[in-house]
Simulated assay, not measured.
Amino acid sequence: MHITESVITLVLFALLAPVAILPWIGWHYAHYGRLRGWSAMIAGAAALYLCGVLAFTLFPLPPRTAAACVGDHHQLRPLASVADVLRAGHGDLVTSVTSTEFAQVALNVVLFVPLGFLVRYRFRRGLPVTALLGLGGSLLIELTQGTAVFGLYPCPYRVADVDDLMTNTLGAVAGWLIAVAVGRVLPSAVPDHVEDLAGPRLLRRGLAMISDLALAAIAGSAVGGALTLLAEPPAHHYRTLVDLVAIVAVALATTLVVPLLRRDRATVGQVIFALAPARAAAAGGSLAVAGPANVVRRFVGWWLPAAVLIGVEHTNVVAAVMLLLGIAARVRHDRRSPVGLLAGTVTTTRAALPGHDHGRQPQPVTAVSAGGGGTGPAD
């Protein structure tokens, strides 16, 4: 089966990176209630580091030419990189440490320093765990490169080097030691747990909405691309239509079917950010869990049109509408957006949802308190 570079890029970067990052964000909200301040910066740095390592080790993908598969793409001699550095320097220390060969070795060490730092500083793990994670992560990278992305590419396009296992592991250990030295003077990277009862800010609600749209766009496009690749060649002429149907199908599943099956009526994006829609009540009154009719109105009024626009490559229109929704919600005292008004819902945190089991008696939530502040769209 012939898989184009664009599809590999889509699946390995645009799809796998968010899949790895979004549960990390959801885990923070589930365990700590809020994600803000210094601890949020550390969490964001960890997510960006994961994306950076993925991009650095896999991309760019070279053109599919015969020249790309020429040469040996496996280096299995331990310490061969050290010999290369010494050879490049011709016995001169300054020349050796300023050579391209030394820079390559140093880069492999530096690449895993943040991993070791985060393992010690954020996750409070010991040196043996750090070394094993460095070795395991490096081994996964080398296997990916040495097997041509596990057979997705015609041949290896990066050199799988046994020395990288040692230099990457050394970098992780160095990062752990740096964290030991400076971690005492830095603020705690672990956020304090707070009851997530206050009304969610518009930014958090907007990120949940973006997550739902991104999931539909990425997963739908990946499914559409796979279907066209598996079909006969004439099917490629209908790629746009296939993508449209796939994107709408994913949106249908994540923003209509899943909420109808869940007791809290939350979309997948809202689940990630520990949010849920509640049926709007009179000012000062308590909220109730949203019903199926609210979910259907929300889907028909927003998610379906947005998915169709993304499917026909009008994502810019969706972004503009989201901005307008955020502005409209920002000017209201209760922070309800037009989507929420249409659906008859107000977005609240899952912990504050009436009847939520979180170790305390449910407390009523007012429509005003569920509004929150900040900027961004809301539903």
Score class of each variant (00 low, 15 high):
residue 271 V to R: 10
residue 196 D to L: 01
residue 222 A to M: 11
residue 323 L to V: 14
residue 152 L to A: 12
residue 351 A to H: 11
residue 120 R to A: 15
residue 255 T to N: 15
residue 248 V to H: 05
residue 49 Y to A: 06
residue 290 A to T: 05
residue 311 G to M: 05
residue 42 I to D: 02
residue 172 A to N: 13
residue 297 R to P: 08
residue 41 M to I: 11
residue 231 A to I: 05
residue 311 G to V: 03
residue 91 G to I: 06
residue 138 S to W: 03
residue 365 V to A: 10
residue 111 L to S: 07
residue 236 H to N: 08
residue 115 L to T: 02
residue 279 R to W: 07
residue 367 A to Y: 00
residue 374 G to K: 04
residue 63 P to W: 02
residue 291 G to V: 06
residue 316 N to T: 08
residue 54 L to N: 15
residue 148 A to C: 10
residue 332 R to K: 08
residue 340 G to D: 14
residue 108 N to I: 00
residue 335 R to H: 12
residue 60 P to L: 00
residue 177 L to F: 05
residue 237 H to V: 01
residue 277 P to M: 04
residue 218 I to H: 09
residue 86 L to T: 07
residue 267 T to Y: 07
residue 23 P to T: 05
residue 266 A to N: 05
residue 43 A to D: 10
residue 153 Y to S: 06
residue 128 P to A: 10
residue 312 V to Y: 08
residue 282 A to S: 11
residue 47 A to I: 01
residue 4 T to Q: 11
residue 375 T to K: 02
residue 154 P to N: 10
residue 182 V to F: 00
residue 38 W to E: 01
residue 359 G to L: 03
residue 71 G to D: 08
residue 298 R to V: 13
residue 135 L to Q: 09
residue 147 T to K: 15
residue 246 A to N: 06
residue 308 V to H: 12
residue 373 G to V: 04
residue 317 V to H: 09
residue 150 F to R: 15
residue 301 G to D: 14
residue 362 P to F: 09
residue 148 A to R: 14
residue 43 A to N: 04
residue 251 A to W: 03
residue 53 V to E: 02
residue 377 P to C: 05
residue 327 I to F: 15
residue 361 Q to G: 03
residue 208 A to C: 09
residue 245 V to E: 15
residue 114 P to N: 07
residue 354 P to S: 04
residue 163 D to R: 07
residue 264 D to L: 09
residue 317 V to E: 03
residue 166 M to K: 03
residue 125 R to Y: 01
